Computed example of a mutant assay.
Amino acid sequence: MSFLLKRLTQKRIWTRIYKERLSEPLHLNIISFFVFLFGSFRSKVLYDLVLRPHHAYSILKAADQAKARGFTEISILEFGVAHGSGLMNMIKVAEKVTNTTGIKINIYGFDTGKGMPEPIDYRDHPEYYNTGDFPMNRDLLEERIKGKAQLFLGPIKETLKEFLTSTSSKTPIGFVSIDVDYYSSTMEVLELFKEDPNLFLPLTYIYFDDIFMENHNDKSGELLAIKEFNETQKLRNISYHKFLVNKRLFKNSNWTKQIYYFHVLDHPYRFETKRNDAKRVLDNPYLNI
């Protein structure tokens, strides 16, 4: 609560509330007040009343999918932990999702622990960042998340290898938050999505943090990394779901444009066929007598 109150003292937060919330239909904002006071966790996710709604939406959807597939637990990952507020929010959200769905959620954070590395060239958007930006208070963060999440500190190439030796298809990855800022770092993260298809849910949710910035485009930054990944992978695809915003009650939030779907086209689930005796027949009112 103290973190939320602190954020409400910032001008940019009130600007976002005005643009993304108060610009929405009045009746939805009125209903939101009562949902905030009396609603279930699912209702609060539906009305974007959970801090960092992209976490709440994605983790809940991943847990629901896992439950339908017969799993009892999933993994969620954050690349670019920095001061740790995102990771700690994922912990809070995961607790509520577990209480709602019964699915256990394993949380992993990846970071250099030393702030931003040197950019390689214009593709890393050096106009936005300085080397050493976003350092971590490692000791304090590890103390606060002990027993709730695991940190992997060091170069992404090395920490990914370490993670992959400890994970399994019994705890498939359902959500990945990517906030490493650079094209080069994002490319290293996306190597994860080339691994064994059974390590993922058939539809895995990804949040890309930086693509809303004006200088980002498909020739640099995260968007270029996504483009190059898709061009080189025949049976894996990272795609923006154009209709997600249509499914949300509140349509002006940036986060709905930052959620991408990772389609694992070679996942065994994609080859399952379910047969039953009842045929599905479409109704045609013009043929009714």
Results as ranks from 00 to 15, higher is better:
Phe33Ala: 13
Thr171His: 09
Thr159Glu: 05
Pro285His: 07
Lys170Arg: 13
Ala68His: 09
Ser168Leu: 04
Val264Ser: 08
Tyr57Phe: 14
Val81Lys: 01
Ser185Glu: 07
Tyr108Phe: 15
Leu199Phe: 04
Thr167Trp: 01
Tyr286Asn: 14
Phe193Trp: 04
Glu195Leu: 07
Glu78Leu: 05
Thr273Ile: 15
Ile13Ala: 01
Thr167Phe: 01
Asp283Gln: 12
Ile120Thr: 14
Leu244Ala: 07
Arg270Pro: 01
Arg42Trp: 02
Ile156Thr: 09
Ile120Arg: 10
Ser184Leu: 04
Phe134Thr: 08
Tyr269Phe: 15
Arg69Thr: 11
Ala62Ile: 12
Thr131Cys: 03
Ser220Leu: 09
Asp196Asn: 12
Thr232Arg: 11
Ile17Phe: 11
Gln65Pro: 00
Arg21Cys: 05
Ser166Phe: 08
Met88Ser: 09
Tyr182Trp: 06
Arg275Asp: 15
Ile173Asn: 00
Glu95Ile: 04
Ser58Glu: 07
His125Cys: 12
Leu199Ala: 02
Glu78Ile: 09
Phe134Cys: 04
Leu223Glu: 02
Ala62Pro: 05
Phe134Ser: 06
Arg69Val: 08
Phe134Gly: 00
Gly174Val: 06
Ala62His: 06
Arg123Cys: 05
Gly39Ile: 09
Glu222Asn: 03
Phe271Ser: 10
Lys251His: 03
Leu164His: 10
Met213Trp: 12
Arg144Leu: 11
Arg275Glu: 15
Arg144Pro: 02
Glu272Asn: 12
Val264Tyr: 03
Arg280His: 13
Ser32Gly: 14
Lys274Met: 12
Arg21Val: 12
Leu22Tyr: 12
